[in-house]
Design a protein around this nucleic acid. Sequence first.
RNA 1: UGGGGCGUCGCCAAGCGGUAAGGCACUGGGUUUUGAUCUCAGCAUGCGCAGGUUCGAAUCCUGCCGCCCCAGCCA
Length: 570
Amino acid sequence: MSEHETSTSTPSNFIRQMIDEDIAANKNNGKVATRFPPEPNGYLHIGHAKSICLNFGIGEDYKGTCNLRFDDTNPHKEKLEFVESIQKDVRWLGFDWGKQHYFASDYFEQLYDFAVQLIQKGKAYVCDLNAEEMREYRGTLTEPGKDSPYRERSIVENLELFAKMRAGEFEDGTKVLRAKIDMTSPNINLRDPTIYRIRHGVVHHQTGESWVIYPMYDYTHCLSDSIEGITHSICTLEFEDHRPLYDWFLDTLETASHPQQIEFSRLSLQYTITSKRKLTSLVDDGHVASWDDPRMPTIAGMRRRGYPPEAIRDFCSRIGVTKSENTVEMGVLENCVREALNEHAPRRMAVLNPLKVVIENYPEGQVEQLQVANHPQDESMGKREIPMSREIFIDKDDFLEVAPNKKFKRLTLGGEVRLRNGYVIRCDEMINNDNGDLIELRCSYDPATLGANPEGRKVKGVIHWVSAEHGIKAEVRVYDRLFNHPTPDSAKDGQEYTVHLNPESMAILQDCVLEPALACAKQGDRFQFEREGYFCKDPAVSATGLPVFNRTVSLRDSWAKIEKEAAKSA
RNA sequence: UGGGGCGUCGCCAAGCGGUAAGGCACUGGGUUUUGAUCUCAGCAUGCGCAGGUUCGAAUCCUGCCGCCCCAGCCA
């Protein structure tokens, strides 16, 4: 693993308990083999992270294996770009599939042979019903379906027809291969499901144009699992109804191995969506800039936002694995991110909304290099120099002419504050422009207060600052939730989920001033800007050529809470 | 109204017949040159509801109620 490692022992869950029991019973000779089977039709998101941590985590902890297998049976929706992004994201999360890297399309020939076997056993037939007719024949949830008129074709005829399907002799949609199971089953998945369809003219990212028939998920997945010797095939709850089908194919074909399908509930995160269709449309319709837009709940987005991979893994272990519906609060993820970053991110000072301060009794032309710790609790992170001079910037929010209440600890006219890592200053005068806007503060400093408390008085507040002459300009992007509804995905009222998009999900601050040590930050480097939050250097450069930093997450802010309460009661 | 699941604190989640873990959130105290961090304390006589079995039930039984998924030639 390339990133810092926080050793969090994975809590057990019902799946691990089942595996423990299997091992105790010496099932599969005690071996454990899982797989993570994404379809390359989009970028991975936080929900996939849960599945990745589950499957790869089990592979590691049980000294077994976890295959990466692309479920690439629908070339219409799939792209090489997505297989590449998926590989990158899994690796970045900290998992390694070794040589166990497969595509379902690797098995197309074997899958075809299995289908021939099914036909020979009288368990599959070529059906000429079109999509609409097939829907009619399927029946409904409460009424049984009826047999297709093509259901009793002879084995010989089916064999011949299926070979012609492969040879490209039929148009799209004119024929399918179906499993012959039970049109009256109360489980709709068992009403003679389609297992092969015809698709001319699509270039598959792996197999090119060598196939014009493509197998369906239910048929492909169980057989791929079996071919790879998977022992525990873990998937989400909506496939529970498909398990009888999964088992039917493996039993009917008498395969050498019969993996066990186990279902768990997918993750929902408040204020986000994890539907691939909707994520795709966010990108395609321009609601976000790209799949790795820092507001996206994708792995790539979170990486660019500055989330450390260990925070995501920690999150996945904290939320647990069960079969119950769940919607996890954002606070849990944010807490994981803060926890990881608090420990590892070096501290820096950055002024996001600059207000100029002239320290009138500070000698003109004097520059002091202050030695400052990179981390208040971790000396091993070393020190850096911060220049102090007569003119500095502080944040506009850290000054108010008159304190609004006794709890206010920042700078006021006539009041004192500590400059973080520096001196105590007092504000003597406010300078306004012609419009009456505050543009500058005149202050004085107490030279005896560097690393020492002032004589005879207490200074409660501490504010951050940057030397005006030495600071570097930067753009800072401050993100908020992409949606302003806790469950934007559940559009019960028939509304499009886009009505819940938060128009203020990104604020761009272009006049920020950073301490000079930040000049050598490399893309992806993560810092705490003291009193502001955690930030990450973005690969982009601003329109005006400035470096760009993304706010990963704010610091926990109990003052904001107090202000909110005050505003409420006022 | 067919089939398959799920209901334990605001949100997750342990619990597997012996008397409700933990995390997040929240509330209050302490330390602090980040209103951060750290730290201490508090936070379900109660497990969807109603009966029953038992010395004893969140755990077993029965009956209700609520929520989710399934009628793609998507996965």
